[in-house]
C-alpha cells in the first residue's frame, strides 16, 4: 500500500511532465512560423517617412539599419531615436532584409535641401526687415533703456524681452555688415 501511494504522485508528475513536453514540442514549430509570419506583415508598417526622418536626424546611420530597427520595434520612432542617442548603435540587418527604401530614397534627396530653409534667418524669424535700416539711429537709445529690464507688469516684461532680443540681433547684423564693408 505504502509503495502504491508513493507511486501515484510520481505517476502524476510524470504525466504532467510528459504532457507539457509533448505540448512544447508541438507548439515549437508553429511558434517559429508565427515569428516569421509577422515580418512581411510588419514590413508594411515601416513608414518610409519615419525612415527619412531618422536618416535626416542621424546621417551617420544607414537607412537599412534604421528600417531594420523600426521593423523590430514595431515602427516606434522614439525607441529608435533613443537607441541611437544612447550610443548602443543599430544592428546590422540580415542580408535577406529588403526594406521598401528604394522608393523613398530618391525623394528624400530633394526634401533634404528643401527642409533646410525651414530654419529662417533671424531677420525673418523675428520680423526685423523693417527695423534694419532704422536700427542705426536707435543704437544710442538702446544702452539707456537697458537699465530696467524687469517690470512688474507682465506685458511690459514681455515687450522688454522682445526688445532685448531684437537689439541683440540687429546689433550683431550691423557689426557684421560694417566688418564686411571694411574688408571690401
Amino acid at each position: 500500500m505504502a509503495e502504491q501511494t508513493l507511486n501515484i504522485p510520481q505517476l502524476v508528475v510524470f504525466i504532467i511532465v510528459a504532457v507539457l513536453s509533448v505540448r512544447w514540442y508541438l507548439a515549437k514549430p508553429p511558434a517559429g512560423r508565427t515569428r516569421i509570419a509577422p515580418v512581411p506583415h510588419r514590413d508594411s508598417r515601416i513608414n518610409p517617412t519615419h525612415v527619412d526622418q531618422l536618416a535626416q536626424m542621424f546621417p551617420q546611420c544607414d537607412r537599412r539599419q534604421i528600417a531594420w530597427d523600426l521593423q523590430r520595434n514595431g515602427g516606434n520612432v522614439a525607441a529608435t531615436t533613443e537607441r541611437v542617442l544612447s550610443g548602443r548603435g543599430l544592428d546590422t540587418p540580415p542580408a535577406s532584409f529588403n526594406p521598401p527604401l528604394s522608393r523613398s530614397t530618391p525623394p528624400s534627396r530633394t526634401p533634404t535641401p528643401a527642409a533646410k530653409p525651414s530654419q529662417p534667418d533671424l531677420i525673418t524669424r523675428y520680423n526685423l526687415a523693417s527695423k534694419i535700416s532704422s536700427s542705426a539711429d536707435s543704437a544710442t537709445n538702446t544702452s539707456e533703456s537697458k537699465g530696467k529690464a524687469w517690470s512688474s507688469d507682465r506685458d511690459e516684461r514681455q515687450a522688454n524681452l522682445q526688445r532685448r532680443r531684437e537689439e541683440m540681433i540687429l546689433a550683431a547684423r550691423r557689426k557684421l555688415e560694417q566688418k564686411e564693408k571694411a574688408k571690401a
Binding site: 534667418d121 533671424l122 531677420i123 525673418t124 540681433i169 550683431a172 547684423r173 557684421l176 555688415e177 564686411e180
Partner: peptide, 8 residues
C-alpha cells in the same frame, strides 16, 4: 552659417 543666420 553666421552670415546666413543674420540674413546677409
Amino acid at each position: 552659417n553666421v552670415r546666413k543666420s543674420l540674413g546677409l
